[in-house]
Each structure stands twice: as structure tokens, then as C-alpha cells.
Design a protein around this nucleic acid. Structure first.
Lengths: 222, 222
DNA sequence: CGGGATATGATAGTAATACTATTATATTTG
DNA sequence: CAAATATAATAGTATTACTATCATATCCCG
């Protein structure tokens, strides 16, 4: 009775023991997502997580090296999932523009339902990405972590969509900048609309984010 | 012999005692900028700052409520300074497009020299803004802090330039989104070009950032 | 010039954090 | 059923982000 089960593979560099390999590990990831959403990354601790899942702090450290690693794991999971959605949705589209438009749609749409094909609640994860993901790479250790491949999935998504931009207009000079601006921008706009509305034009309900970024991309490259 | 001395006024809500009011306070701000740049916000502490300026942890707490408040202070200082630059540079321009172009230039240019009109080193501060500023508002307390006016100067800058966008094209629906996308985007691109080059098209030396965002804004609104 | 106010410094203390290390107890597997 | 493995329990550490208290230095004002 389970729906289509997609396996999101995460680079072993991002964990000590694969959380997907045990019930306890899955519970850790699942509950950590809820807790980070509720209390914010700063106030979230492994000790609290342990208590919440009826386990122990020390057990969590056997899966993740640190709180920061867990965040990187979640972010990476998210981008793998987005990559999957992008590939799945564009694979049979031959028209470049349509393909790009579809991708922009996926990158800008709000995540409102969980497909439940894994132990990760995508709706809450999306909220975490909006509020906390920038902390994953705004560290003094970025360069080392980048070398270890911590941000590979994010880079892959940006690359994928940048290539579509180049397909639409091979002469456009800055496809990667455009797409990373779009992706980061979407997260900011969603965050602003909830907390700093003076920085956006998003009105509750209507989804301007998609319309705005669609316009932005196509007007810029054509 | 002092150059044109501009007074950047900071909202008293952002400090307990005005650091600009004493030599010690100025030293705190000055040194904190250097230290946050060198070791990153996470590893920076008031104790270390105290030692570095030959003062005491407790004295710093008399100026700033917390490490976080200090960051908010610095971010606010930065935006007040940018606002000053914007107003100064555009005040006599009558042509809307030229005014907007000039503003985009100011928002996208790299800060390479310190005007030394205050105790703040703008070059290093700019680096901090790129690497750490998002942490100022990615907190669980955003809403409370926003109500207290912590992000006023940032919002004012966005508003100022959004209005110029509307002046160029009154029918454009999303001026605020466009400008906050631009501002955040510039910081991201500069960060990426240094740490995650796969996410940008910025090549060392040449300044594509300005060109790209100029193109982006004008193509989007016209 | 002396005294009171104010600014700063020194010291101590606290609860919590982000871990590490060790040992004990389950649970699984061959 | 034993050995291997996973998990739990406990303790401990250095550091953090503060608060509180008291002492000392400096400044201002009559």
C-alpha cells in the first residue's frame, strides 16, 4: 500500500552511520526536522533530540558527527529531492523554454504536501530550508567542507537548471548566477513574506513568487 | 585634516550604551569587526574581544546586550552607510533611469577602500555583511526584533531603491521583491565566488556582478 | 580641592552547550 | 547459545553566554 518509494541516496561523507539504515536513525532525522522547525537551529540540541525520541545523546553522535553535520545532511537531502523532482518533471519535454519554465515552477512553488515516500516530511523540511539552510554554508569551514563534497547536491541542481538556461539562450553570459540568484531569492522571499513583509511584495494567498521569478528569468535572458 | 565626517546615527534600541559615545565603545566596534571577519561570528566571543582590546567582558555587556545585538548593530550601521551613499549619489539626478542605474551600481560595487570617516572600517564590515549578515535575521526572535525596529535601516534602503524602480516603471508589480532579490543576490554571489565558485559565473578580477544585476533589473522592468 | 557620580575592571558564579570517553545492557545474527 | 553489534547510561570536560557583585579609577561640579 506504500506509494511509489523513491530512494534518496545521501553521500556517506555526510554521516557517520547511515540514518536511513535503521529505525532509530530514521526517527532521529524525522524528529530533528520537527524540532529544528519548532525551536530553531540554535536552540536545538542532540540532548533534546535524544529525549524526544526516547533515545540517548550518545546514540545520535554515532550517526552524526555534530549538529552542524545533521543540518548539512538535511540540506543535502532536500536538494537531492528537488533534483529528483526536476529530472522527473522535465525528462520528456523537448522544448527548451518549456523545460526551463517547468523547472522554474518547481523551484518556486511552495511545498504544501508531503509525498510520504520516505521518512522525511518534505513540508517541514522545506520550512527549515527557508529559515536555516544558509547556516549550512555560512561557516568558517566552508572551504574544507566544500572539498569534502558537502554541497554537491545543491551545486548539481544549480548546474542542471543553468544548463537549461544556456539551452534557451547559449549567448547568455551568466546562467549560473541567474539560477543561484533565483533559488536563494525564492527562499528569501518566502522568509520575508512571513517575517519581514516590508522586503517583499508577496501578499498572503496569491503566489507572486513564481510569477515574479518566471518573469525575471525570461526577461533577463531573452 | 580629518576628511568629511559623516555621522551615522544608530537607533538606541540597538545598544545599551552608545558605543560611539566613548573611546572604549569605538574600540569595541572596531575590533569586533576585525575579529568576526577573522574567526567568524560563531567563534567570536565577548571574552575574546575584551582581551583583545585590553578591556573586560563585563564592560562590553554594558554596551551591548548580547553578541547577537552587536551583529545587529553592525548590520544596521552598514545599511545606514549604504543609505547615505545612495542618497548622496542620486540626489541631483533627475532622470529616473540614470538614478536607478546609479543606485544599482552602488549596491553591486565591491567595497575596496575605507573612507575613514568613522571608527568603522567599511571594507572589513562589508566582508562581514557578505558572510554573516543573514544570521542577524535568521533567528527565532525575528518577529519581536522586527517590531523593535532592529531591521529598519535595511528596510529603508530596499524601500528607497524600490521607489526608483517604480519611478522608472510604475506598472511593474514587484519592485520590492526585485530589489531585495538584488541585494541579497549580490552578497550571495560575492560569497559564492570566493567559496563555492560552482554557484556563480564571477571570474576573479572582472566585475560581472554589477553588469549582471544591472541587466537583470532593467530587463525585468522594461 | 574634595566628594559624589559614573565608567570601567576584576572576580566569581551559573546553567547550558557540544561534545568525548567509558562502561553496561540489549538485540541481532551465525 | 555465544559472539558481535547496537544502543543506553553515566560521567566528565572545556567553553559559552551570560549575571551579579564589588572594587577601583576617572570625571565633573560646587
Amino acid at each position: 500500500m506504500k506509494p511509489l518509494s523513491i530512494h534518496i541516496t545521501i553521500d556517506p561523507a555526510l554521516y557517520t552511520k547511515d540514518p536511513a539504515s535503521s529505525e532509530l536513525g530514521k526517527k532521529m532525522v524525522q524528529k530533528s526536522i520537527e524540532m529544528i522547525d519548532e525551536m530553531g537551529f540554535e536552540k536545538f540540541t542532540f540532548k533534546k533530540l535524544g529525549t524526544a525520541i526516547g533515545s540517548n545523546e550518545s546514540s545520535i553522535y554515532r550517526y552524526f558527527e555534530s549538529k552542524h553535520s545533521l543540518l548539512v545532511y538535511l540540506v543535502s537531502w532536500y536538494w537531492s529531492w528537488v533534483e529528483y523532482k526536476l529530472v522527473f518533471a522535465t525528462t520528456n519535454i523537448t522544448d527548451s523554454r518549456e523545460k526551463l519554465a517547468k523547472s522554474i515552477r518547481i523551484l518556486t512553488e511552495n511545498v504544501t504536501e508531503d509525498h510520504a515516500f520516505s521518512f522525511v516530511n518534505e513540508v517541514i523540511l522545506h520550512k527549515i530550508i527557508i529559515a536555516e539552510s544558509s547556516k549550512a554554508y555560512h561557516t568558517k569551514d566552508v572551504d574544507t567542507e566544500n572539498q569534502k563534497g558537502f554541497y554537491k547536491t545543491y551545486k548539481r541542481v544549480v548546474q542542471l537548471v543553468s544548463d537549461m538556461v544556456s539551452e534557451v539562450n547559449p549567448d547568455f553570459e551568466f546562467p549560473t548566477m541567474l539560477i543561484s540568484t533565483l533559488i536563494e531569492g525564492v527562499h528569501h522571499q518566502r522568509y520575508f513574506s512571513e517575517h519581514l513583509p516590508a522586503l517583499t511584495n508577496v501578499t498572503e494567498g496569491e503566489d507572486c513568487v513564481m510569477r515574479f521569478y518566471n518573469q525575471l528569468v525570461f526577461n533577463t535572458i531573452l
